[in-house]
Simulated assay, not measured.
Amino acid sequence: MSYDHILLPSGVAATPAAADAYLTAQQGQPASEVAAQIAAEVNRRNAEMSEQDSFLSVAPIDALGGALHVPSPYDAIGHVRALLFELATPRDYAIYDPQLSWLIDPAGRVPVTVTHGGAGEFPYLTESLVHQWIPRLSEPGPYLIVEREPEVYVQTFREDENSYILEYRDGSPDKHFGANLTDPARVADLIWDWTNGDRSRLNTLSWDKIDL
């Protein structure tokens, strides 16, 4: 079995359903210049690997219109995702994950290191993504960490359906605080505020000092 990532231009779809409709419309279309460039680079890098280390399930890959389907073995998901962010983001391309119904569009992104407990690392955060992710955090890794630099981060852990722990750290153990919340939309709003450097709503919470 393969795990699929699909690249499509930023802004052509706002939902998974719209992404699927866009992909259907690309069938039979000649490859766009950008999609062809990305396909060529993915193929080149895969060709440099030994056969047993190939990160593509099917090679070479070809673009259809503005879309590029990238199938990989399950044990190469992290490598492929990182490669696609490297190649796609500077070209204003989004990554669609049909298995998780995630549309990761770089529009409006803030470059931070995001660790999603169930899916690994991502190089940026958007308002759409944080609102998509927070309500769906689940075992075995029901947490999200957004890090601006070492020891400067905000994070949340979902204890159960209606309970989130929200923490932030400003560089040292004496600047590590936490609060308990019940509304996932509010948690997402606060994480997005922190990511943008807006402390106005964060400052309205009653924070407890966290001793680690």
Rank of each mutant, 00 (worst) to 15 (best):
E121G: 00
A47R: 12
I145H: 12
N180F: 01
T195R: 08
S2N: 14
R169T: 07
D53H: 14
D170F: 06
A63P: 03
Y153H: 12
V112M: 15
D211V: 08
Q26G: 03
I77L: 09
V154M: 15
Y3P: 06
A19R: 07
W207L: 10
I61T: 07
P73F: 06
T204E: 15
N43V: 08
S2V: 10
M49K: 14
M1C: 04
D75F: 10
A188D: 02
G197F: 01
D208L: 04
E48N: 03
R109D: 04
R45A: 02
Q155F: 01
A179F: 01
T115Q: 11
G108N: 08
L129F: 05
E151G: 00
P90F: 03
G178T: 10
R136A: 12
R45F: 05
E127M: 08
D4P: 00
M1E: 08
H69I: 05
H131F: 10
N203L: 12
N203G: 12
I6W: 02
Q27E: 15
A94T: 04
E159T: 11
P106Q: 02
I191T: 00
Y153R: 08
G28W: 07
A47G: 06
Y3K: 06
V130L: 02
L68V: 03
I38W: 09
G120T: 06
S57D: 14
F122T: 04
Y22P: 11
N46L: 10
I6K: 13
Y124T: 06
K175F: 08
F157T: 10
P140T: 04
E149K: 14
F177L: 11
D75V: 05
D208R: 06
Y143W: 15
Y164R: 13
G78R: 12
W194M: 02
S10Y: 01
A14M: 02
G141I: 09
V80L: 12
D62H: 14
G171S: 09
L23R: 13
L68A: 04
D97P: 02
L56A: 10
N46S: 12
E48D: 14
H116F: 04
R158A: 10
R91E: 15
E121W: 00
R148E: 14
D97V: 09
P142M: 13
Q132L: 11
P60Q: 08
A35V: 02
Q52N: 12
A179S: 15
L83Y: 08
H79P: 02
V110E: 04
S200M: 03
N162P: 00
R45K: 06
G120R: 06
T115N: 09
G11C: 09
Y164M: 05
A39E: 14
S72K: 05
